[in-house]
């Protein structure tokens, strides 16, 4: 091995570990939901294999919950598929935004990366790029693999032992994701127009969840904040 490749592989390992370290709060915060999903999937008529398959292939907690809920209600299959897509439609925006950060990656790496583009993966990638660090494939999969790996294991545990899980509300597990997402929101506070975007998206999403209902409040609230930025944000020359 030449010294050049040794350096490259060491920095790849370092990047991978750095990404994996960032996955810890995500793994902890999403664990209760993975277990809950597994338990509810079996309760709604899924086999253990199907529950695990859904976590591995769709890999999007909220959309999976919606999917099993509608299946339990005997909704038409095509409508269930459509609902899964609607819940994950916000990933179109993540894709467009992340694509700018990884445009220089080889095609296959990009194709793999988009599979893993869930909420925390996207937010951490933006944070990483914002800090001025190079966004490498090793870092990206270092973050992604523990998250999806534990998500699948959590699903399996819930599907197999769901009935044995006691009420964990006292430990606050039901509210860990909002806390985590708030931390991510705060992490972007140095961006131009951050406060107006957050206030408008918060207000509109709350109104939408009370009127139109979930999961539409995500798209509607996000659209309001994004539109605000597109209309009023200073042009690129003016910021920084």
């Amino acid at each position: 091995m030449t010294s050049d490749t040794a350096v490259a592989s060491r920095s790849r390992t370092t990047d991978f570990i750095e990404g994996a370290r960032l996955s810890i709060p995500v793994v902890v915060a999403s664990a209760p939901f993975g277990v809950l999903f597994g338990a509810l999937a079996v309760e709604n008529g899924f086999t253990v294999t199907e529950a695990v398959l859904m976590s591995a292939l769709i890999y999007g907690g909220a959309s999976q919950m919606v999917g099993i809920e509608l299946f339990g209600q005997k909704v038409a299959p095509w409508l269930i598929v459509l609902s899964i897509f609607v819940v994950n439609a916000r990933h179109i925006l993540y894709s467009a935004a992340t694509g700018r950060l990884i445009a220089h990656w080889p095609f296959l790496q990009k194709a793999v990366a988009f599979f893993f583009l869930v909420d925390p993966q996207y937010a951490e990638a933006e944070r990483h790029a914002e800090a001025g660090k190079p966004l490498t494939f090793a870092w990206y999969v270092g973050l992604a693999l523990p998250i999806i790996g534990f998500w699948i294991v959590d699903t399996l545990v819930g599907a197999l032992f769901g009935r044995l899980v006691p009420n964990l509300d006292a430990l606050g597990v039901d509210f860990l994701l909002p806390i985590y997402f708030l931390g991510l929101v705060m992490g972007f506070r140095s961006r131009p127009f951050w406060l107006p975007i957050v206030l408008v998206s918060a207000f509109v999403s709350v109104v939408a969840v009370k009127t139109v209902g979930s999961p539409w409040h995500v798209s509607i609230g996000a659209a309001a904040g994004i539109l605000l930025a597109a209309i009023f944000q200073p042009m690129p020359e003016a910021r920084r």
């Binding site: 916000r90 925006l93 993540y94 467009a96 935004a97 700018r100 909420d119 996207y122 937010a123 933006e126 509210f175 994701l177 909002p178 997402f181 708030l182 991510l184 929101v185 972007f188 961006r191 131009p192 127009f193 951050w194 975007i197 957050v198 998206s201 918060a202 207000f203 999403s205 709350v206 969840v209 979930s214 409040h217 995500v218 609230g221 996000a222 659209a223 309001a224 904040g225 994004i226 539109l227 605000l228 930025a229 597109a230 209309i231 944000q233 042009m235 690129p236």
Partner: peptide, 27 residues
Amino acid sequence: HPRVEAALNAVPAAVLTTLVAPAAVDG
């Protein structure tokens, strides 16, 4: 386009906020 750029830069704060705000109001 600069406006598309501005819109994309707003994506993380806008989307992630909608995952927090309703939970906060109901809390």
